[in-house]
């Protein structure tokens, strides 16, 4: 239970960063923190006490494995997270080259 709550607090920290920061790089960092908390939550849901990693060894059959399904989903989500972060950073670097600042309010004013 404590682990779930800590995970939720990590999500809230990311949300706080996205809402209150004005710097585009910090917004990207906060988004990736939120992503990381979700990955951790999925890995926690699939954990079984005394389970082993879901790799079958025919010579030595073990009865309890941890749940492979959340792990497969997180595997997909991690790679897509990389793709979105790369896209975000590319857009940020374009904005910086055009306006010379990372501040979103300033960019809004410069647009005019």
């Amino acid at each position: 239970m404590i682990a779930y709550i800590m995970c939720f607090i990590l999500f809230l920290v990311g949300l706080y960063g996205v809402i209150t920061r004005r710097n585009l790089v910090k917004i990207a960092v906060s988004l990736s923190i939120m992503e990381i908390s979700i990955f951790l939550l999925f890995a926690l849901i699939g954990y079984v006490d005394g389970g082993v990693a879901p790799i079958v060894d025919p010579a030595d059959p073990v009865k309890t494995y941890v749940d492979p399904l959340p792990q497969a989903m997180v595997l997909t989500a991690i790679v897509i997270g990389l793709a979105t972060t790369a896209m975000l950073m590319t857009i940020i670097i374009r904005l910086y080259r055009k306006y010379g600042t990372f501040d979103i309010r300033e960019i809004k004013n410069l647009r005019g």
Partner: peptide, 22 residues
């Protein structure tokens, strides 16, 4: 710790790439 070695391998690679980009 949560017995997910595949995720650990993928995450360490992805995190390094993200860090390099940022």
């Amino acid at each position: 710790l949560l017995k997910a070695p595949d995720l650990a391998i993928v995450q360490i690679v992805v995190d390094t790439i993200t860090l390099i980009i940022m």
